[in-house]
């Protein structure tokens, strides 16, 4: 701020140099506007489904209707903004395809989110689904990756009953299900540890070759999980972009007639992403142009 008062060359060069030393609060303001404006204007940009999103879609699509699918809500409200859209889309996709869905959570608050999803997504779009037959909520279990280990030898040891206290032996959906290997697909929507990485590490041994595993992750975590694709992981949805792409694939094949905005969350949240990314790119360019201008000026002055 103090440097601003020193003598600067006139014209564009001076302006550029001054821009390079701009008070950071103007940047904050620009970020706020870049995010708030597209939200208020409800800007949406078309998405091109990427390889990962397509692979995830295909994994769920390729197993026959009536297959058993386990969706693990391994996140909490703090990362819900990033992960909830993909969790919603996965749930809707599985239900539309006619899979039988078991929901569970390795994070304590994940159970609440799964409950919300059952109410707002599953029963909203598929009111005909019956608890115990088409879906079951197993709830949260303490023990982190230990739960996965237990479930890979015996689900009954980890979950004696579902979230409402009904013994799992009395749940038609889980008839004949002994280990996680008896599910045709597991999807972990994960925000960290325990999450997708632990599912791969501890669940893999119990999974037969025909078994599929897909994950939805936060952007931060994605680079640690990439090595698992495509061998141990069929597909992966990375951050809100993955959610938006996948959402598009799902709603294209299985459109919904009411409350459609719940399955457009990902794309809606990509609007601010788009503008904010452009802003960041612009800032990097501006910073470098300004630096070059300053360097040239100092060089000339010398």
């Amino acid at each position: 701020m103090k440097q601003r008062n020193e003598q600067l060359p006139p014209g564009i060069r001076g302006f550029l140099i001054r821009m390079g030393q701009i008070d950071r609060r103007w940047i904050y303001l620009a970020v706020a506007v870049a995010i708030a404006a597209p939200m208020l204007a409800r800007l949406r940009f078309p998405e091109v489904p990427g390889r990962m999103a397509q692979a995830t879609f295909d994994a769920i699509e390729s197993i026959p209707p009536g297959s058993r699918v386990l969706i693990a809500y391994d996140f909490d409200p703090a990362s819900a903004a990033e992960l909830e859209p993909m969790a919603n889309a996965v749930l809707h996709h599985c239900a539309s395809k006619g899979h039988r869905i078991a929901l569970m959570a390795l994070w304590p608050l994940g159970k609440q989110l799964a409950d919300d999803a059952i109410r707002d997504i599953l029963l909203e779009y598929h009111p005909e689904k019956v608890e115990g037959v088409d879906y079951v909520q197993l709830g949260f279990k303490t023990g982190n990756e230990g739960v996965i280990k237990l479930m890979s030898t015996s689900i009954a040891e980890a979950y004696a009953a579902d979230a409402s206290g009904k013994p799992i032996t009395q749940i038609p959906l889980l008839e004949g299900v002994r280990t996680i290997g008896d599910f045709q697909l597991i999807a972990s929507i994960s925000a960290g540890t325990p999450g997708a990485q632990q599912w791969v590490q501890y669940g893999d041994s119990a999974m037969p070759d025909a078994f599929k595993f897909v994950a939805g992750t936060t952007g931060v975590q994605s680079s640690q999980l990439l090595p698992y694709y495509p061998k141990q992981m069929e597909g992966m949805l990375i951050a809100i972009k993955g959610a938006a792409e996948y959402e598009m694939l799902v709603t294209e094949k299985y459109p919904v007639t009411r409350s459609a905005d719940r399955l457009a969350l990902g794309r809606e949240r990509m609007g601010p992403q788009f503008v904010a990314h452009l802003l960041l790119i612009g800032l990097i360019v501006l910073g470098n142009v300004s630096m070059l201008a300053a360097r040239g000026w100092k060089g000339a002055a010398r």
Binding site: P46, A239, K241, M270, Q273, H277, I281, L283, N288, M291
Partner: peptide, 28 residues
Amino acid sequence: AFRAFRAKNFEAILLLGTAFIILLVQIA
């Protein structure tokens, strides 16, 4: 990003270049 991603040397160019590419490909 504004302050630190300046192409002062080759290492910095790699850092900001990669970030730049990822920022770009992350959106449509």
